[in-house]
């Protein structure tokens, strides 16, 4: 697969195939492979990798524009955010991202990209149309998780070594609150119409739930997997089902997903997946969930209704981020 990507003939063939097949293809899951400098594209119907696309160095965060005509990729070691045409797989241009971009979030205005610069303790705001940096905001050490509220008024950056969620006012681009969480926060998301903010803490082994209106912690929950030492249960990415009643939380080197009741914050069960599971993406109807398993170099497909792993798909080395292309 990897070899294919670097073989120009194969790339040409892949491009030709996708062009001749027309645009009305099945939905896809795009997975960044951190240590292969590629993206693996998984067809949701066949559950197979149908394309492998070369990227810049150390691709991690990945997200699509609202109309899915562009895909943005954090090429961390190239110190840039790449803008790719998802049809051709061509890099159209780079965005000035600041150093070592790791994760980002696209504002609901479809223009402002908020980027965590892991090595620089900065969040960079870039206008994807003018390709200019609008602002740089000082945050804690090793910013990583990024989230934006549905109304676009608040952006969150979590910092892994400072152990905080930094609350950014998107009007002024200034911090209006800094809230401590447990050790090494990795991922943040606004849930339930933007009333709750969830932040996972990898080393702390917990997920903190904040009331957005007051920025106060409302709840905090942890995990316990029989036969796995608590130190190895390290929450990173999480996703909520369509009805927002159930959360899936990736638990890193414990090689499990937790299924959490999103109203009572109780863990209902655990699902065994690949090794060192980090991030996830749903299929369009949210019936399937795809997890990136860094160490085993594969993606586990979960049947959401049955809460079961149904397939493992080999991708590149150290898959990191995942994004849906409907």
């Amino acid at each position: 697969m990897t070899r294919q990507a670097t073989n120009p003939k194969a790339l040409f063939l892949a491009a030709l195939l996708s062009a001749s097949a027309g645009p009305a293809l099945a939905a896809e899951i795009w997975v960044t492979n951190e240590k292969d400098d590629t993206i693996s594209v998984i067809d949701i119907d066949t559950l197979e990798v149908i394309r492998t696309i070369p990227t810049g160095e150390r691709p991690r965060g990945i997200t699509f524009s609202q109309d899915y005509s562009r895909v943005y990729i954090c090429a961390s070691d190239s110190d840039t955010v790449q803008v790719m045409d998802p049809e051709s797989g061509e890099i159209l241009h780079d965005l000035p991202s600041g150093e070592d971009p790791e994760q980002f979030i696209l504002h609901p205005d479809n223009r402002r990209l908020y980027i965590a610069n892991e090595d620089d303790a900065i969040t960079t705001v870039v206008d994807v149309e003018t390709r200019k940096v609008i602002a740089q905001i000082d945050v804690g050490i090793e910013p990583e998780g990024m989230a934006v509220s549905p109304d676009g008024k608040i952006v969150i950056t979590t910092s892994e070594t400072t152990n905080m969620a930094h609350w950014i006012d998107t009007e002024t681009h200034e911090l209006f609150a800094n809230t401590l969480v447990d050790a090494r926060p990795r991922h943040a998301e606004f849930l339930k119409d933007g009333t709750e903010l969830w932040v996972s803490a990898e080393i702390g082994g917990t997920v903190s739930v904040f009331d957005v209106a007051t920025q106060q912690e409302r709840a905090k929950f942890g995990f316990e997997i029989r036969g796995v030492h608590p130190d190895r249960v390290q929450p990173v990415g999480f996703k909520l089902t369509e009805d927002e009643k159930t959360a899936f939380v990736a638990l890193g080197p414990s090689n499990h997903l937790a299924v959490v009741n999103a109203e009572t914050y109780e863990v209902e069960e655990y699902i065994l997946v690949g090794r060192r599971v980090w991030h996830m993406a749903f299929s369009p109807d949210k019936s399937l969930l795809f997890t990136t398993n860094g160490v085993s170099g594969d993606v586990t497909v979960i049947d959401v209704e049955r809460r079961e792993a149904i397939k493992t798909i080999k991708v590149g080395r150290f898959p990191w981020g995942a994004a849906l292309r409907p």
């Binding site: 804690g140 070594t161 400072t162 905080m164 800094n178």
Partner: peptide, 10 residues
Amino acid sequence: ADNLTTGKFL
């Protein structure tokens, strides 16, 4: 330096 960065928010 790590401590100072955290400290400035608190």
